[in-house]
Each structure stands twice: as C-alpha cells, then as structure tokens.
Amino acid sequence: MTTMTQTAAKADTGLLPIVSTALAGVFLIFFAGFAQATVFHDTAHDTRHAIAFPCH
C-alpha cells in the first residue's frame, strides 16, 4: 500500500513545478551563455568559449 501511494505521488509531480524548474534553468543559461550586454559577456567570456557556446 505504501509503495502504491509513493508511486502515485511520484507520477503526480504536476506540470507546473516541472515547467518552472526548466524555466529557471533556461534563465540561468541565458544570462551566463547568451546575454550580449557587455557585463554578462565579459564575466562569462572564458566559460562561453570553454563550453562551446557562440560567444562573439
């Protein structure tokens, strides 16, 4: 019974936490990897090159 309850809970994450978690990830990657503002570019320059993102 316990197992069944847990299984049900596992499958019941709901889309909202999943989507918001993924969006938080996209948000971080955007600023670290893509934002072209000079301050972001300069701070992340070496990281962008080292992780093979298009840099400049």
Binding site: I18, V19, T21, A22, A24, G25, V26, F27, L28, I29, F31, A32, G33, T43, A44, D46, T47, A50, I51
Partner: peptide, 15 residues
C-alpha cells in the same frame, strides 16, 4: 559562471 551554467543544465535535466 561554470557553477551557474551547470546549475542551469541541472535544472533542465531534472525537469
């Protein structure tokens, strides 16, 4: 910045 980027990758992976 590596910590930030990999946390970002981690969030998407875990999603």
């Amino acid at each position: 910045m590596n910590m930030v980027v990999f946390s970002g990758f981690g969030l998407i992976l875990v999603a």
